[in-house]
Write a protein that binds this DNA or RNA. Structure first.
Lengths: 135, 135
DNA sequence: CAATAGTTTAGAATAACTCTAAACTGCTGC
DNA sequence: GCAGCAGTTTAGAGTTATTCTAAACTATTG
């Protein structure tokens, strides 16, 4: 299982250090694409797993992984960032009461009528967030 | 100009205090629907306008206005909340480099293929954020 | 395996809020 | 009109999420 994480880091041009390997393993190994974690969640999980990692490193690593295209940052609530292991084109279902986030494939969804993009700008990405509340 | 703000607060069931009137005036009077402010921005504007308001009150007021349906909270970046004077059904264009936020009428946009909503949940709202970068 | 460049870390620092408890102020009712 | 109270405001402390700093460590390269 370490091998996949190792290759992933290498391919992303990140030096495969002990803590990055541990975090990459936790994030990607044995989990379906589409895990959503916050820094605190991943930190707690790493600790529970016996990994010796600092919270600062978890933050650094999440940001580096995001920069390297291994993760994607999702902002749904003020105050906390979520990171998604699914970096493909997709959208989100957000359960307001539990804070749970669930992926929705982008090719299921069709968006029509987007306004003209101003000259000099280009679309970096379109985020659709369906906010759900308990009925 | 004070009259509109006064009526707006009354209709929202908020006691029209000096600071609420001032903030409501700044937010709504003489501005087209669709202003986007952060707490710090509104605080600075109020100060520049000579209003005696504390930052805590700006935060409280923005939250109360949001609760009363006078404003809508928009989360696009980690770390800061934006408040939108347009409370109608609409979406956003977000300029990543400048941080500018611009409204897009919802009836221009059509979204198809949303996944089935889980039993027991209902859609509170659908947010579409078109993130733009400089080309 | 030594040098070095990139990493990690504890703890301090920052940013964006929220809370607290005391001071203040609209709004009643008389 | 004004006393009195419930609702507001505020300064400053507290909290939370995150970043910074500078020293200690470690993966890679020669």
């Amino acid at each position: 299982m370490g091998a996949a994480a190792y290759a992933r880091l290498r391919d992303a041009g990140l030096r495969p250090t002990r803590q990055r390997l541990e975090l990459a393993s936790l994030l990607f190994d044995g989990h379906p694409r589409g895990r959503h974690v916050t820094a605190e969640m991943l930190f707690a999980e790493a600790r529970a797993d016996g990994a010796r990692v600092s919270l600062a490193t978890v933050y650094n690593t999440l940001n580096q992984f995001t920069g390297a295209g291994l993760l994607r940052e999702v902002v749904v609530e003020p105050g906390t960032s979520h990171f998604d292991t699914n970096t493909g084109d997709h959208h989100h279902l957000y359960f307001e009461d539990s804070g749970e986030l669930r992926d929705v494939d982008a090719d299921r969804i069709e968006i029509k009528g987007l306004p003209p993009i101003p000259r000099g700008a280009e679309v970096a990405r379109v985020d659709v967030i369906v906010r759900l509340r308990r009925k």
